[in-house]
Amino acid sequence: MDLTRFQQQLKGTSSKTRPLPPVEQWNPDFCGDINLTIALDGRWFYEGSPIGRASLVQLFASVLKREGDKYFLVTPVEKVGITVEDTPFLVTQWHREQGESASDNTYVFTTQTGDIVRLERSDQLKLRVPPKAIQDPEATPIPYLCVRRNLWARLHQNTYYQLLEQADEKPHDAGTQFSIQSNGITFILGEVSN
Score class of each variant (00 low, 15 high):
P143Q: 05
C146L: 14
E138H: 14
D168E: 15
Y144W: 10
H156Y: 09
T176H: 09
P131R: 03
L119G: 01
L151M: 05
L163T: 04
I142A: 13
L145V: 08
Q157D: 15
D136N: 15
R154Q: 13
R148T: 06
T159R: 01
H156K: 11
K126L: 07
L145T: 02
I134M: 11
Q177F: 01
Q124A: 03
Q157K: 14
H156T: 03
P141G: 02
D136L: 13
I142T: 14
K132S: 10
Q124R: 01
D173H: 13
P143R: 09
K132C: 06
W152F: 06
T176Q: 07
R148F: 02
V129I: 13
E165P: 14
Q157F: 15
H172R: 12
H172Y: 15
K132Q: 09
L127T: 00
D123S: 05
L125V: 06
P141K: 00
T159H: 02
L164I: 11
R121W: 02
N150I: 07
V147M: 04
A139V: 11
N150S: 12
R128M: 00
T176K: 15
T176P: 13
K126T: 11
D168K: 12
L151R: 12
Y160G: 03
F178K: 11
L164M: 12
N150D: 05
G175S: 08
V147Q: 02
A174V: 15
C146T: 13
D123L: 06
S122T: 09
P143G: 07
R118W: 00
A167F: 06
P171K: 13
I142D: 10
P171L: 08
R154Y: 05
T159K: 01
T176N: 08
P141V: 07
N158K: 14
D173Q: 15
R128K: 11
A139F: 10
L125K: 03
K132P: 11
I134W: 05
Y144M: 07
D168S: 13
L145Y: 03
A167Y: 07
I116L: 08
P141T: 06
H172V: 06
E165F: 10
E120V: 15
R118K: 10
L163M: 07
R148H: 05
R148Q: 05
V147W: 01
H172M: 09
